[in-house]
Structure formats: C-alpha cells, structure tokens
Simulated scan of single mutants.
Amino acid sequence: MPRVRELEVFRVVLPYGRRPESLMVRLTDYGGMTGWGEVVDPDAKTWAAMEEGLSRALIGVDWEHPDELGVVPGGSASDMACWDLWARMRGVPLAHALGGNRTYLTATVRIAAERDLDSLVARVNRHVCAGYTHVTLDVHPGWDIEPLRAVRQAYPALGIGVDAHGAYTDVGALEALDGYTLSAIERPFTGPAGFADHADLQERVAAPVLLEVPSVAGLCEAIAAGAGRALLLRPAAMGSLREVRQAHDHAVAAGWEISCAGGQGGGLARAATVAAASLPGCGLPCDVAEPPRSAQIVTPPVGASGGVVAVPLTQPGLGHNVDESRVRRLAKESYAA
C-alpha cells in the first residue's frame, strides 16, 4: 500500500524555445521509492493550490490505487506522480497499468507553414528520409490546397493529416481538402463554432474530423452531436489518467479513432502520453516529436526514432530515469513537505 513520506515540487524553466515552464512533482514513500509527475505551462493558480493542499492530500495517507485519491491539488502532475509511484512499487510499466497493449507507436511530425512550396517539400523530405511515414501539415485560409497538393504529388503514399488550429469558419473551404486522402482534419473550428459546424463538416468529408475535447463530458456531447470521428487526446490537459482512460473508452465505444499528443515539458509529460497512446484504441499516429532530446530531464529521452516511438516496457512506472540534479539546477523555485 503506497504511503507518501515526503514530496517536493519544482518550478522548472526549460532550456529551449521560449523557455517554457513546468511544474514537476516528486513523491517519496516510506520505502524510498519515488514517483514523478509534470504539468506543462501550468495555470497561475496551480502552484498556490499545491502549496496549500498537496501535502494534506497525500502525506501519510493510505491508498491502494491512484483512482482512490480523486482530484488532487496539482492536477495531472500530482496524479501522474501517484501513478508512477504506484506502478514502480508493483514493478509494472505505466503503459500496462493503464491497460495498454502496444509495444511501439507510429509518430507524426508537425510541419508549420513555410515561406514557399519548395521549402515545405524539402522539409517534408527530411522527415521522410528520417523514417517518418506520417506528417501533419499546419493549414489556414490561403495556405491549404496548394501545399497539400505539392506534398501529395511528391509523396503519393505518405500519411498526411492537417491541423487547422481553429482557423476556419467556412465548412466548404475545408471540404475541398478531402480529395487528398487525409488521415484526419484536426481542430477545424474554434471560437463561436459549435459542434453543429463540426458535424456538418464530418458529413461532407471522408477523413475523420479530429477534435480536441479536454473533458469526458465534452467528449460525450461531441459524440452525441456526431461532431467528428476522432479524438485528439492530451493526457496533460485532463485532470487524471483515470479520465484519460474514460475518454479512451467512450471514444472506442462510439467507433472513434484516437490520436495522443503531449505537452512539451521536460519529458515526463511526454512519457505519460506514450503510455496512454499504448491503449488499444489509439490507432492514429501520435505526436511526441518535442521537446528536443537535449532539453529533456529523463533518460532515455522520449521521442521518435525512424518515425517510431518505443513504449518502454522493461522498466516500471514511466519507464525513464529522472536527472534529479538537472531538475534542481533548472528550478527557479521549489518547496518540500
């Protein structure tokens, strides 16, 4: 039975890009076993909530399974640390603890809009040569049909999805993309657009409309509305891995496909994404291409090799070792209880 003896929380500034922040949680039980969790770009209130209530919720509390703890201050980071600790104590990989059965995942790589078509095709070529069999192209009005046509003509057998980042208001403009054998049309509408627009688009196109829905209740509404046929599942955006499994089960029961994606962070959140993506319904290519390997605080780093992501099954828990000394060097703030 897990019983947390002490905990530490670190506010870490990561050394890449715009220097994103992560909150990392380290739990230690009475036997010296540790579990880690991470939330990327946390809400401003998360740190205060953890300082105020995390030790009261976890230290000295007996529990048999992470699901028993309910909502824990710190959300997905605290929940992830509990799952990591629980799985390590039992000597099982997190992927198996969640019910996953995959040993490897097909990865996609996201391709941002380029300055011209030649640059776009050259960039896609680099990833194809590196072993990727699927790419996700960013599109927006004015940059959609021509780049998609150029990539499809250059690589007739390549798996291609498009991510609209909510840039469209016209269903017809997106319908025109469907002739290029897409694996998914991701996040077509945001703002005032509701599930009715998504349902209208899904009726018109053969490709599954891929929705990012950050709650189980929202997913159930989307399914009832016929708003798509695929779920973009971000474990870090949900409060717990229990909710991740529930969302997976609802999507599978509705016949929806699933693609898993994770926050950038230092590698811990990505490791949880890989574990979730090993669930049987997660058949669409997953997105774990970032962060840079050199910026991660876990070994081995989380990422794709030859377009494939190995699910770590030889070590318990998240399946990666944490460089604690690096976490402490990168932390701009921390507290212990």
Rank of each mutant, 00 (worst) to 15 (best):
E6R: 14
L14C: 10
P15W: 01
P20T: 03
P20D: 03
T28L: 07
G35T: 10
E38R: 06
V40D: 01
A48H: 06
L58R: 11
W63E: 15
E64H: 06
D67C: 09
A77L: 05
A77H: 02
M80C: 12
A81E: 03
L85Q: 11
T103E: 14
I111D: 12
D118R: 07
S119P: 02
L120Y: 03
A122G: 15
R123N: 15
V128M: 03
C129H: 08
G131K: 07
V139D: 05
V139H: 00
A154Y: 02
G159M: 08
A164C: 15
H165T: 12
A184P: 04
R187E: 15
L201T: 07
Q202Y: 04
A206Y: 04
A217S: 13
C220T: 13
R229H: 12
A237V: 05
A247G: 10
H248T: 08
H248S: 10
V252R: 00
A254R: 01
G255A: 05
E257T: 00
G265H: 04
L268N: 06
R270L: 13
G283F: 00
P285A: 05
E290T: 14
P292M: 09
P292A: 07
Q296R: 08
P301N: 07
P301Y: 02
V302N: 13
G306N: 07
V308N: 10
Q315V: 05
H320K: 09
S325A: 11
V327N: 02
R328W: 06
A336R: 07
